[in-house]
Simulated scan of single mutants.
Amino acid sequence: MKQKLLISGLAVSTVGVTSYLLKDKSNRQKVKNFIHSIKSSFSGKPNIDSFPVSKAGNPHPENIEDNKMVSEGSMYPVQYYDEKKK
Protein backbone atom coordinates (compact mmCIF):
# COMPACT_ATOMS: atom_id res chain seq x y z
CA MET A 1 0.00 0.00 0.00
CA LYS A 2 2.80 2.40 0.91
CA GLN A 3 4.58 1.67 -2.35
CA LYS A 4 1.47 2.48 -4.42
CA LEU A 5 1.03 5.70 -2.47
CA LEU A 6 4.68 6.62 -3.00
CA ILE A 7 4.52 5.94 -6.74
CA SER A 8 1.28 7.86 -7.21
CA GLY A 9 2.63 10.77 -5.16
CA LEU A 10 5.77 10.82 -7.27
CA ALA A 11 3.68 10.76 -10.45
CA VAL A 12 1.47 13.63 -9.28
CA SER A 13 4.45 15.74 -8.26
CA THR A 14 6.20 15.05 -11.60
CA VAL A 15 3.11 16.15 -13.51
CA GLY A 16 2.85 19.27 -11.38
CA VAL A 17 6.48 20.29 -11.83
CA THR A 18 6.33 19.58 -15.57
CA SER A 19 3.16 21.64 -15.93
CA TYR A 20 4.75 24.53 -14.07
CA LEU A 21 7.91 24.44 -16.18
CA LEU A 22 6.02 24.21 -19.48
CA LYS A 23 3.81 27.16 -18.60
CA ASP A 24 6.23 29.49 -20.39
CA LYS A 25 6.02 29.46 -24.21
CA SER A 26 9.80 29.57 -24.72
CA ASN A 27 10.28 26.52 -22.50
CA ARG A 28 7.62 24.65 -24.48
CA GLN A 29 9.44 25.48 -27.72
CA LYS A 30 12.74 24.25 -26.27
CA VAL A 31 11.12 20.96 -25.28
CA LYS A 32 9.53 20.58 -28.73
CA ASN A 33 12.88 21.19 -30.43
CA PHE A 34 14.59 18.71 -28.11
CA ILE A 35 11.97 16.02 -28.78
CA HIS A 36 12.21 16.65 -32.52
CA SER A 37 16.00 16.27 -32.44
CA ILE A 38 15.68 13.01 -30.48
CA LYS A 39 13.12 11.66 -32.94
CA SER A 40 15.26 12.57 -35.94
CA SER A 41 18.31 10.89 -34.41
CA PHE A 42 16.34 7.62 -34.06
CA SER A 43 14.56 7.81 -37.40
CA GLY A 44 16.99 5.35 -39.00
CA LYS A 45 17.85 7.65 -41.87
CA PRO A 46 21.36 9.08 -41.58
CA ASN A 47 21.66 12.80 -42.06
CA ILE A 48 24.58 13.11 -44.48
CA ASP A 49 24.74 16.87 -43.94
CA SER A 50 25.60 16.36 -40.28
CA PHE A 51 28.88 14.56 -41.07
CA PRO A 52 31.96 16.76 -40.62
CA VAL A 53 33.20 16.07 -44.15
CA SER A 54 34.84 19.47 -44.47
CA LYS A 55 37.54 18.49 -41.99
CA ALA A 56 37.88 14.85 -43.09
CA GLY A 57 41.55 13.98 -43.53
CA ASN A 58 42.62 17.52 -42.74
CA PRO A 59 42.32 18.05 -38.98
CA HIS A 60 43.01 21.28 -37.19
CA PRO A 61 46.68 21.47 -36.14
CA GLU A 62 45.77 21.95 -32.47
CA ASN A 63 43.30 19.05 -32.33
CA ILE A 64 45.62 16.35 -31.01
CA GLU A 65 43.14 13.47 -31.10
CA ASP A 66 42.20 14.05 -34.75
CA ASN A 67 45.85 14.44 -35.70
CA LYS A 68 46.72 11.18 -33.98
CA MET A 69 43.88 9.35 -35.72
CA VAL A 70 44.88 10.68 -39.15
CA SER A 71 48.55 9.93 -38.59
CA GLU A 72 47.71 6.35 -37.62
CA GLY A 73 45.76 5.97 -40.84
CA SER A 74 42.55 4.89 -39.17
CA MET A 75 40.07 3.51 -41.67
CA TYR A 76 37.14 3.31 -39.26
CA PRO A 77 35.83 6.84 -39.96
CA VAL A 78 36.04 6.29 -43.70
CA GLN A 79 34.18 3.00 -43.50
CA TYR A 80 31.57 4.52 -41.15
CA TYR A 81 30.98 7.44 -43.50
CA ASP A 82 30.70 5.14 -46.54
CA GLU A 83 28.16 2.93 -44.75
CA LYS A 84 26.02 5.87 -43.67
CA LYS A 85 26.19 7.43 -47.13
CA LYS A 86 24.77 4.26 -48.72
Rank of each mutant, 00 (worst) to 15 (best):
M1A: 13
K2G: 12
K2V: 08
Q3R: 14
Q3S: 14
Q3V: 14
K4M: 13
L5M: 15
L6F: 13
L6K: 12
I7L: 15
I7E: 11
S8W: 08
S8K: 08
G9L: 04
G9Q: 10
A11F: 10
A11P: 06
V12R: 05
V15P: 03
G16K: 04
Y20W: 14
Y20M: 08
L21G: 09
N27L: 07
N27A: 03
N27C: 04
K32D: 05
K32Y: 09
N33I: 07
I35D: 00
I35S: 05
S37G: 06
S40D: 15
F42K: 03
F42P: 09
G44W: 07
K45Y: 00
P46I: 03
P46V: 05
N47T: 09
D49N: 11
S54M: 06
K55G: 04
K55P: 01
A56Q: 04
G57A: 08
N58R: 12
N58M: 08
H60M: 10
H60N: 12
P61Y: 05
E62V: 05
E62Y: 03
E62D: 15
E62G: 03
I64K: 14
I64F: 09
E65W: 11
N67L: 07
N67R: 05
N67A: 01
N67P: 06
N67V: 07
K68L: 13
K68R: 15
V70A: 01
S71I: 10
S74H: 06
M75E: 12
Y80H: 11
Y80C: 07
Y81S: 04
D82S: 14
D82P: 08
D82G: 09
K84D: 02
K85G: 01
K85D: 08
K86Y: 08
